[in-house]
């Protein structure tokens, strides 16, 4: 209930802001046509401009409807097509990042030298605004002949490995002394301790960090699409929209990206609930 109210209020503010921001243009047009603009006419005009400063929600909705349902999926104008391109880069990068992150975390937990030397750099690597070098990675990899999905996926990977490393290190270390001692009294080997105790008890941490990693990975893929010369993908739609002042297109790409993020993150949420329940860890 409260969520619904808040969302309604946000949409209402959006409509009001659309009137406010688009009013100058509407007044300008009316003045040149030599007309006085009444309140009703003003509202109507501000909500239906071609290239408004802030498109009204229903315009964005109509654009999304037009570019998803009414276009063929293979069409260059279809949002589904662009979304798919972004999604594939996101998932690929997310997969790489997760695997890399887990391996790194295992290394850090089992090797003291790695713990002391790598961990500070893992943290430092995130204080570097890596997204800034995204265009360079793309261009450089392009020069070596790698183009398309992989460069974008690399950026996604870089952004998504960090939460996984931090979460998994915490998770793999979460079994307490008592449990580790118990494994020793059972004469468990290091591998057995890992598979039977450390890995299972790290699962809640893993899923929490996977959610963050997924969101980060999507951001990486979108930003990775910016410098490729606006060919395809949601990021390219954003860039093309900003070049040609197609605000409605920008907003619809933005909403599509938001929806994609929401779906992906909630998918992991479902997976988390199912897994943890089967493992008997759900409280």
């Amino acid at each position: 209930m409260p969520v619904a109210v808040v969302v309604t209020v946000i949409i209402a503010i959006w409509y009001a802001a659309a009137v406010g921001l688009n009013a100058p243009w509407a007044h300008d047009k009316a003045k040149r046509a030599g007309q006085e603009l009444g309140l009703a006419a003003l509202v109507q005009d501000t909500w239906s401009q071609d290239k408004p400063k802030l498109p009204a929600p229903h315009q964005v909705g109509a654009e999304i409807w037009k570019t998803t349902v009414q276009k063929k999926i293979t069409s260059k104008r279809s949002l589904v097509y662009h979304g798919w391109i972004t999604l594939s880069a996101t998932l690929l990068g997310f997969g790489f990042g997760t695997v890399f992150g887990i391996l790194l975390a295992v290394g850090i937990v089992y090797n003291r030298t790695m713990d002391m030397s790598v961990m500070p750099w893992v943290i430092a690597s995130q204080t570097i605004p890596i997204l800034a070098i995204a265009p360079m990675i793309i261009v450089v990899l392009n020069a070596v002949g790698i183009s398309g999905l992989l460069p974008k996926a690399m950026i996604s990977m870089y952004l998504s490995f960090f939460p996984v490393v931090v979460g998994m290190v915490k998770g793999l270390r979460s079994p307490d002394r008592m449990q580790l001692d118990q494994m020793r009294t059972w004469n468990a080997s290091a591998a057995q301790t890992f598979w039977r105790l450390r890995l299972p008890s790290s699962m809640p941490y893993l899923f929490t960090s996977l959610k963050i990693a997924m969101a980060a990975s999507l951001v990486g893929a979108i930003v990775g699409e910016l410098p490729t010369g606006a060919v395809a993908g949601l990021g390219a739609r954003l860039l093309a929209g900003s070049y040609y002042g197609q605000t409605i297109q920008i907003w619809s790409a933005l909403i599509a990206a938001a929806a994609l993020a929401a779906v992906l993150v909630s998918l992991i949420g479902v997976l988390q609930r199912v897994t943890l329940r089967r493992m008997g860890m759900q409280e």
Partner: peptide, 8 residues
């Protein structure tokens, strides 16, 4: 969790 950078 959204790609807010897209607002840029």
């Amino acid at each position: 969790a959204l790609p807010v950078v897209g607002m840029a």
